[in-house]
């Protein structure tokens, strides 16, 4: 296993582009944390202090931060996808196999890279949220309450990366893999919309759609990813009362299970493609 990681290290770290993006990614995570603690935007003449809105209060901070920084995962998606598509365009996958690496080893090394990126990101995010919370939290809650959002974040990244892995192996070209991601994203959006509208039309009527209602389409891969960490609940009354405006929205266990199943499916499909295809 260590051998496979060392091989991947050579492939990723000694490539200037991926090295730069990796470093940049972790810097961005830290910078987001620093900026969040310091910006005081002015909206309509009223100075808003993000830190004072209860953004960084335990336990809400765990959801707020993991929800916010999840977008940065696209950086790692670029690295993961190019790292794999390069193996096709440089024909090094073929050479690796000829040199005696098995297809299983090849896939494991790529999966390990995904897990490590997800793990490092989670550690960073955990650290940032903890520090921000220690500085700004005024709630007096136990800091470790709702820390499971970091675990959801870890899962969310792994799910997303396994989708990237599959698309990269399937489509073999960087541009197409990203196009695949966009198609999946828009496709899921369209299907979700159809379901929501149809249900409303049959049931409650189009004018009063219940956003909390159950939808099968919530279990499509990217929807599962966004449902792992939902947008924090915002209640303006809380703010008026002088407290926090954010509230925790729990993640249902069914999304955790769905994420794990999808990860298995995408990794399995990747392996099947590798096995089946001639190089």
């Amino acid at each position: 296993m260590l051998r496979l990681l060392k091989i991947e290290w050579n492939k990723i770290f000694y490539y200037k582009a991926t090295r730069t993006f990796t470093i940049l990614y972790f810097l961005i995570l830290v910078v987001i944390g620093v900026i969040l603690g310091n910006i005081k935007p002015e909206i309509g003449g009223i100075k808003l202090n993000i830190a004072k809105l209860g953004t960084f209060d335990f336990p809400e901070i765990w959801q707020n931060i993991t929800y916010l920084v999840a977008i940065a995962k696209i950086f790692i998606a670029v690295i993961i996808i190019t790292n794999i598509t390069n193996e096709y365009s440089n024909r090094t996958l073929k050479q690796n196999l000829i040199d005696g690496m098995s297809k299983k080893e090849f896939l494991s090394s790529k999966v390990m890279v995904n897990v490590i990126f997800a793990l490092l990101s989670s550690v960073f995010v955990f650290g940032i949220a903890l520090v921000l919370g220690k500085i700004f939290s005024s709630s007096g809650e136990n800091p470790m309450k709702n820390v499971e959002f970091v675990v959801y974040y870890f899962l969310k990244l792994n799910l997303f990366f396994s989708i990237c892995l599959f698309l990269a192996i399937w489509l073999r070209k960087t541009a197409f893999a990203f196009l695949g991601l966009i198609v999946l994203w828009m496709g899921e959006g369209a299907i979700t919309l159809v379901e929501v509208l149809t249900r409303a039309w049959i049931g409650t009527g189009l004018e009063n759609i219940n956003p909390e209602a159950f939808n099968y389409t919530s279990y499509l891969p990217l929807n599962v990813s966004s449902n792992l960490i939902k947008a924090p609940r915002i209640n303006p009354e809380g703010f008026v009362m002088g407290g926090t405006i954010f509230g925790i929205r729990e993640t249902e266990i069914s999304y955790v299970i769905a994420a794990l199943i999808y990860m298995l499916i995408f990794t399995g499909l990747s392996y099947w493609l590798l096995k089946k295809r001639d190089l």
Partner: peptide
Amino acid sequence: PNFYPYLS
């Protein structure tokens, strides 16, 4: 020859 072009 198949190698990583960006590596030494």
